[in-house]
Design a protein around this nucleic acid. Structure first.
Lengths: 246, 246
DNA sequence: CCGGAATGATGATTTGGGTTAGTGTCCCTT
DNA sequence: AAGGGACACTAACCCAAATCATCATTCCGG
């Protein structure tokens, strides 16, 4: 019945893909059929996969936040992307053998693993889904380009503003924003690592955003106070998210 | 005969894909069959495609350098990737409608355009090629992650060192390096825009690299004087290029 | 063949953000 | 209940890189 469908771990993914193209009930059923194995859980600060590994399964994040990151031999670390509920951690397992980056849990996470054959089966049945999944990958790539622009050219304030707007749109797409408020369950340190800033300066920048009346942030709840102004500060253009349908 | 095959505009591409997986003569023929239309030429500093456009063809760069870039309303510009001979400018035309970035010629370029149907035909015949092309896209994405790490965490010197090593490997893969020397046909301004640095500081960093005996650069020829040292400075790990075969 | 961009190179000065070194407050864990 | 982490926050100081300004050369279009 509908209730079990809505509770399915694939629900956020279905919502997300629906932003790209029209999917029907059969697509939805096919997606939820991916969830055969048990839900796995990991604590914050643990790695889901390490650079150099060769994972054999595709992982779908059900709840919690994770990230892709790369680190340097001397310990410097850069978060190169966030995984939100409904995101796949490394669809590229199909093509590349070795991971060139690590995947870490930023909060407690729940996810399940999909065997390649199982994945293949679903994909063969539903050409629409391949297209939507490829789309999702392309958007991920577009987000990376946007981050490159941010870190290369935007100031600390602009960068953070941009990230918050991006997260707002992405979380809204999977039903995790209520009005202009959403849970931001990660630490200032994580935000710093994602933006190429020091934790100290990130904190200063957050204070500034609060002072300017752009956001409110406490108890892991981020409230966008003035979206229009925030987008202006960030020079935000949503085209790179390629949400064709609303 | 063989001579015409080697002269084909698809030759660099074939070389490149061969670094990922074994391709046979039939694959080579199929690739060169893509080149039906005329070779198009553009001058340096002209745009191949602009953000917001919806190109209907895939472009294969035959000679010269191009780049993906994104710009902000106030004129700041970030180069988010280089296209070298043998690279496709936007394979994602298949999936996404609107370009979320621009593509510009950094030097005079020669390329040809491939119609989707034509592309589809070749791909249908040669499953190996789809795989190799997807691989290439995944590597492009890995390069973006690496750039994010560079700009976010590496110092100006480290960044530039890393870029030079990367370019060396990529150019070598398409046969455009002779020993440790290759042509670097772009300006210091372009290098600055790719590295998120001001032109002035980029110039100073170049001077430093010369002083340290890492490189020699004049008349658009870059010679890596001490590759081992350069890789050490850059903390370079080639895994992200995923060259499985040498 | 001339004039004006592009390009590369440097000096002087400023600044955004890093570093270091704390503080206090919640948690956990045992 | 005590001890140790994580985490948010702040102050003082420092530095890598930006900015501003200038000049010499090369390149290129009319």
């Amino acid at each position: 019945m509908m209730a079990t469908m809505t509770d399915a771990g694939t629900e956020p993914l279905f919502r997300l893909l629906s932003r790209y193209m029209a999917l029907d009930h059969a697509d939805r059923v096919a997606l939820s059929a991916l969830e055969t194995g048990p839900i796995r859980k990991l604590n914050a600060r643990s790695d889901i996969a390490r650079e150099g590994e060769n994972p054999s399964v595709v992982r779908l994040l059900v709840s919690g936040w994770a990230c892709r990151y790369k680190d340097l031999p001397d310990g410097r670390r850069q978060i190169v992307g966030f995984f939100l509920p409904g995101d796949f951690c490394d669809l590229n397992v199909y093509i590349l053998s070795e991971l060139d980056h690590s995947i870490g849990a930023l909060t407690g996470v729940r996810f399940f693993e999909i065997e390649p054959e199982q994945f293949q089966e679903v994909i063969d049945q539903r050409p629409n889904l391949i297209r939507a999944l490829l789309w999702h990958e392309m958007v991920a790539s577009g987000i990376q380009r946007q981050w490159l622009l941010s870190i290369g050219q935007r100031s600390a304030l602009e960068r953070l503003a941009h990230l918050f707007v991006e997260l707002y749109y992405r979380l809204q797409a999977v039903g995790l924003a209520t009005g202009l408020t959403f849970e931001l369950p990660i630490t200032q340190n994580h935000l710093a690592e994602a933006n190429g800033l020091s934790p100290v300066h990130l904190n200063r920048t957050l204070q500034e955003m609060r002072r300017e009346g752009l956001i409110e942030l406490s108890d892991r709840q981020l409230k966008i106070v003035d979206l229009k102004h925030l987008k202006k500060v960030a020079m935000f253009n949503s085209n790179y998210l390629h949400f064709n349908r609303t």
